[in-house]
């Protein structure tokens, strides 16, 4: 279970941000997950739903996952292509001299939080 460990890291991080900003409730958490980041979005969501019940600030938090397309760059023909379709080998020129441009990210983009509209707000 790779996803659970990452969920726990993410939740720790968000809880810290919530504390630092004196936020009571985090309503929404937006994350970007690369297509080839080795994270399965459905598993990640399931783990999140399970883990959030045990938090201080995220019990009502909705998780938004944005899956980023993986793109590979070819150093020989300078072209780019969909990684999930062709892997390491460039479909334009057949070269294996390629590297991943995007698709490996696991990023916390941001959170939406509830602010009490009190007198001192």
């Amino acid at each position: 279970m790779h996803e659970l460990g990452i969920v726990v890291n993410v939740i720790d991080e968000v809880e810290k941000v919530a504390e630092d900003n004196k936020v009571d409730k985090v309503l929404r958490l937006t994350m970007e997950i690369g297509e080839v980041s080795a994270i399965v979005p459905d598993l990640f969501s399931d783990c999140f739903e399970w883990a959030k019940k045990r938090t201080k600030h995220l019990t009502d938090c909705e998780l938004e996952l944005i899956v980023l397309e993986a793109v590979t760059y070819c150093q020989d023909c300078k072209g780019t292509y969909r990684t999930t379709k062709y892997g390491k080998t460039c479909p334009h020129c057949g070269s294996g001299n390629t590297y991943l441009l995007t698709g490996n990210e696991v990023t916390i983009k941001g959170i939406s939080v509830a602010e009490p509209t009190s007198d001192n707000a």
Partner: peptide, 10 residues
């Protein structure tokens, strides 16, 4: 509702 941008690599 306020949005806090983080852009943090996990």
């Amino acid at each position: 509702v306020k949005t806090i941008l983080l852009n943090k690599n996990v």
